[in-house]
Design a protein around this nucleic acid. Structure first.
Lengths: 190, 190, 190, 190
DNA sequence: TATGAATGAGTTTTCATTCAT
DNA sequence: AATGAATGAAAACTCATTCAT
């Protein structure tokens, strides 16, 4: 090995891909992604053998990114509702700060380029969240739901809320709060 | 008139487009859509001058289709919760019976080919639903939310629920019920 | 024969074709030509079996139109130079009044859709002009030239002069005069 | 640089385009141009981003080619008529040797794909010729004409003369001479 | 490893012509 | 005779991928 792959370039490609996918969908061209990443067209394929590989790796990278942001500062000792609110606010704030990443994730979610395997791996993020809340189920505060539905509810309601925030950024607080009320109503027992 | 435009062909194109968009996204080719509709490539453009027109008309047709299914048999005299449950069940049943249409709608929702005007027109469907529930707001049963959020919540939670149903069709009842609980919790006051 | 072909429609098609060819070249679509003529797409082919036929008939019609305009009022008894000047001025005036027709003729002149037969037939116009001037050759006032060159010279110099006039219509007089001086110099003996 | 753009390929495309435009007009397909140039269809667009760009660059290349041929060996010290004759003969000889290029130029001249900017740049060729003859105006040998008319006259009369030469190549001398007489008559004072 | 020219299959759209009405 | 829907073969252009440098 003369030179190892540059982590920096790899990240530049992923960042550029996120922007491109956010604004153009998964049909964003590799040429554009490469150019915006500051590398040559061919170099992209040194790091990702096919476009599909790039798409899937982007999906995982975004999920991981979000997870890191959401899990930080998790208040392990607070009560269930407060912990849920922490997770909600973190998710919204991450999405509000990273609109391109969120929009890219939405595009990837509906694309058939993202394999079942990637989806499964990506799901782990919210499974982690769910397990954070196991105590909530035990205590009867959270409503029992089929496997995966809590995570999915979290996903779609944050997404929906963010859509409103993107349209009216200065009402962030209002939407975040109203969204949380819907969220808490959706997942808790009366 | 030499030959009138055939309503039948127009519908065949829209149906074919729905299937194609459901499985391939909006990048589904007009050639495939035409072929599956049983017409020549050029004929598609007799009915829809551009692909973008087709995409937008498809969006509106799907919304209208869904609305028709959902509004049928609406129990005007029942109480608010029952009326909501009626709407919920209708939506889920429509989606369960028309997976391609639902999937197509998801693809269209994230596509920038669908114009703001089409989105606005499409929104009317859920606005109608919301207005059906106005009494619910007046009586304090439904939680007050920013304009549009109730409709959006309905949309994303039915979508999410259907995703589970598509994966396990024989658990339709379970998911529909659990979904409604989340939905009712999300929109009602405690 | 139920109804005979309508001369009026035929002329409308030719007029529309002239305009279309003038502005778009011979690649102007038959659909546009038909529409601007106020008839249906298919009707055009009732009058002209193929587009090539239309193109060639248009060429001949334009030549005939021009010839009619140029020959009117020819001063048979005037001297050679005066007769030439009459022809020149008529040509220029016709072109100035009918820019679309002139431009269409230019487009047709370079198109390979116009057959050699049409060209030959079209040439007759200027051959007639040339024969009007036979006396000029006999008397030695006009320079002897190879067959056809006088006609061709007339054609290209009027065309060139008109190009200037189209750009600056209010200098018509100046260009017409200067053009004639060049023309007379080109065809007469010193 | 991976591989530099090949000047050779660029020239092959321009040469192929000249041939295609000469015989088929500006509607000659990029597919044919590419094929005849010995490259893939897509490669053409590596060298010329759009067909319009190719058309305009071809126009300029042809003008430059002609200018080079015409200006070579210009007899600066000869008298005005001899210098004009030199220019005339050079022009005719270039056109006789390069019929495709000349025909392509005629097609381009009437095409609206050639922009005003290209035309202006192309005009410089004949403006140069005109300025070579400035002394001719000063001395009163050449007739005073509106700006641009001398250049245009040169253009259309060479074109016309070449048309005859293409039809009867073995009479080149005769047509060139007769053409020059017309030309000299057109531009000089009696 | 990095580059970007080269490729050809695939994309949307146009169009002369046909033919059922 | 008149109509305009239907056709499918181009047309210009894009793009993921390969490979010579």
């Amino acid at each position: 090995m003369a030179r190892p792959l540059s982590e920096e370039k790899r990240n530049a490609i992923l960042a550029s891909a996120a922007d491109a996918v956010a604004s153009l969908g998964v049909s964003a061209s590799t040429a554009k992604i490469a150019k915006d990443a500051g590398i040559a067209e061919g170099t992209l394929f040194v790091y990702f053998p096919t476009k599909d590989d790039l798409i899937n790796e982007l999906y995982l990278a975004l999920k991981a990114d979000m997870k890191a942001a959401v899990a930080t500062g998790y208040p392990e000792t607070a009560n269930v509702k407060e912990r849920c609110e922490h997770l909600w606010n973190r998710s919204i704030d991450w999405g509000a700060r990273n609109p391109a990443k969120r929009k890219a994730m939405r595009q990837l979610s509906v694309s058939d380029k993202v394999t079942a395997a990637s989806r499964k791996a990506g799901m782990a993020v919210f499974q982690d969240i769910q397990s954070m809340l196991d105590e909530g189920f035990a205590s009867g505060i959270l409503r029992r739901q089929p496997q995966g539905m809590l995570a999915a509810t979290t996903d779609v309601l944050t997404d929906m809320t963010l859509e409103f925030i993107y349209r009216e950024p200065d009402k962030l607080e209002i939407y975040r709060r109203s969204g949380f009320e819907a969220y808490w109503g959706a997942i808790s027992n009366k």
